[in-house]
Design a protein around this nucleic acid. Structure first.
Length: 275
DNA sequence: CAAAATACCTGATCGC
DNA sequence: TGCGATCAGGTATTTT
């Protein structure tokens, strides 16, 4: 599933390929998750130029001419694919932006959780603010101080669900939460107030290290994720815990175990990550 | 207010 | 072979 490293990989690829391209036409094959509705969405996009492509956490943001902004959230199974003009759309290709040049941009989402939202400048800023995103973990502002202050605001909260909220860090999902907690040897159900400072510091460093590493190799293709060219990532080969249940822990050889935390599958080392 | 549960979706997988 | 149950999980919404 696309988390920060995957969305960032796609963002970089799109920035290189379609920045400056004009949207000549838009085909909508399934429009239930478009804002505004289908006809306004199409009319609002046609003829605009893609000025820039940005990212906030897992939320992609295309800056368009005329001050319009197109937000794209891929949620679980969403993909943004650059396809040849003559390519046959995949079964779950819901929207196709027909661009100037040799490629079209396909929004594909098997499970239809994602959405495309076209707003004008003012509404776009309000929408972004409504997410209440925490700092970008790969930007300067993500200091240990900032991280700790946000977490200790909810002393009784469990650490893993807190990491999945986007308010203390933007862009972490299940894969990287599982990996970071394994790396820092923290049990996902630990109450924040019970985690020693040294471990919290390590968690902060591990989050940054793991996300940087994952961006470098193009993200994790653990299930449905492919980049804008349809290629897999490289981080699935480096996973230490996510999807590794039953295998020996890379540190202590104990058998990795799968548990549920707030309804989410979570892999831990029962020996390294004690409550 | 927070935290937990449920809804949204489709496809893969498993037990029978 | 098929069929129902279960699981995958980001986020909005509803319930506790």
């Amino acid at each position: 599933m696309p988390e920060l490293p995957e969305v960032e990989t796609i963002r970089r690829q799109l920035a290189r390929s379609i920045k400056g391209k004009k949207i000549n036409d838009v085909t909508v094959r399934w429009g239930k998750r478009l804002v505004p509705g289908k006809s306004k969405f199409v009319a609002g996009l046609k003829g605009r130029t893609i000025k820039d492509i940005r990212r906030h956490g897992k939320l992609m943001r295309l800056e368009l001419s005329g001050g319009k902004v197109l937000f794209v959230h891929l949620k679980m199974t969403g993909q943004l694919l650059l396809k040849d003009k003559k390519a046959v759309p995949e079964k779950h290709a819901h929207v196709i932006l027909k661009l100037a040049g040799s490629k079209d941009l396909h929004w594909v989402d098997m499970r239809k959780f994602g959405f495309l939202k076209l707003l004008d400048a003012e509404a776009a800023e309000a929408y972004l603010a409504s997410w209440n995103f925490g700092p970008e973990p790969l930007a300067r502002g993500f200091t240990y101080q900032v991280f700790r202050d946000c977490l200790t605001h909810s002393p009784n909260a469990k650490i893993k669900p807190k990491l999945l909220e986007q308010t203390c860090i933007a862009g972490i999902g299940n894969i990287y939460a599982v990996e970071a907690l394994w790396a820092a040897k923290i049990h996902p159900l630990s109450a924040i107030k019970n985690i020693p400072e040294t471990k919290l510091k390590k968690l902060h460093r591990d989050i940054v290290r793991i996300l940087k590493d994952a961006v470098k190799v193009g993200g994790t293709s653990a299930s449905d994720y492919y980049d804008a060219f349809g290629d897999a990532g490289g981080y699935e080969k480096k996973l230490k815990a996510y999807q590794q249940e039953g295998k020996p822990c890379k540190r202590c050889r104990a058998k990795l175990k799968k548990i549920k935390v707030a309804g989410r599958g979570t892999v831990i080392c029962p020996k390294c990550q004690k409550l």
